[in-house]
């Protein structure tokens, strides 16, 4: 198994871990967003609560969710370790006094993946505390009614703003991360790479946008009484 250790500890192997976990998280995001669209299914949240109940009790989903937690942690920890390696490779500190930078695609995103990732992680912790933790360990305003919790949370303007900022960070992270994952896996082809890039753009905008509809919708509803 030395070959596997060699692979996993090599620079390329570490990036492959980032890309595979990242792509897994991308599929999760789609599932999560589609599921959450049930928030709009009816006005009393019955369907959404049913869905939440299913997600929390179905044994298969539960197993997958442990995988998900693991991948989130792996992606985050590996990402931070890579960031540290890269800082060391640059030699630390401020690098150049000259200010110009090469024009590259998605420059701001690509150069700040670690920072964006950290923001997303912070957002994720807040998000999980608000809903997942309370649902699992108690603390919901009305026991068993997650829909009600969503309504309450998104009535607060600061929560909405934090969520929207979190989603902007997510969008930027995805904008670079999605197509970068394919490059890291060596999946590059003059015919298909443009498609992947296009898909990446669409994904990075549509998925966060889909999520964004939720806080906005509930805030507007609350605002209008």
């Amino acid at each position: 198994m030395k070959w596997l250790v060699n692979f996993l500890t090599s620079s390329l192997g570490r990036k492959v871990i980032m890309s595979l976990t990242g792509l897994f998280l991308c599929t999760f995001l789609v599932v999560h967003m589609i599921g959450n669209l049930k928030l709009f299914a009816d006005s009393d949240g019955h369907k959404f609560n049913e869905y939440a109940e299913f997600m929390a009790t179905n044994p298969l989903i539960k197993t997958v969710s442990y995988g998900l937690y693991f991948f989130i942690i792996l992606h985050a920890v590996q990402g931070l370790l890579i960031y540290a390696s890269n800082r060391a490779a640059v030699g630390g500190g401020r690098r150049y006094a000259g200010k110009q930078v090469a024009p590259t695609e998605a420059r701001a995103a690509a150069r700040n993946m670690a920072m964006l990732g950290t923001l997303i992680l912070a957002f994720l912790l807040l998000h999980m505390w608000q809903f997942w933790f309370k649902a699992k360990f108690g603390g919901l305003a009305v026991e068993g009614d997650l829909f009600n919790e969503v309504k309450i949370a998104f009535a607060e303007p600061w929560v909405v703003i934090v969520y929207l900022l979190g989603l902007v960070a997510l969008a930027m992270h995805l904008l670079h991360g999605f197509q970068s994952a394919f490059q890291t896996l060596g999946l590059n082809h003059p015919k298909y790479t443009p498609l992947i890039k296009g898909l990446g753009w669409a994904y990075s905008i549509l998925v966060p946008l889909g999520f964004a509809t939720m806080p906005i919708y509930f805030y507007v509803m609350a605002f209008n009484g």
């Binding site: 620079s11 390696s85 690509a110 890291t184």
Partner: peptide
Amino acid sequence: VTQMDNEGFGLCSNVGACEA
């Protein structure tokens, strides 16, 4: 790749500054 890693170069983030 092993040698490249041993030299202390960083990891690729697919930024594209190198190509540019």
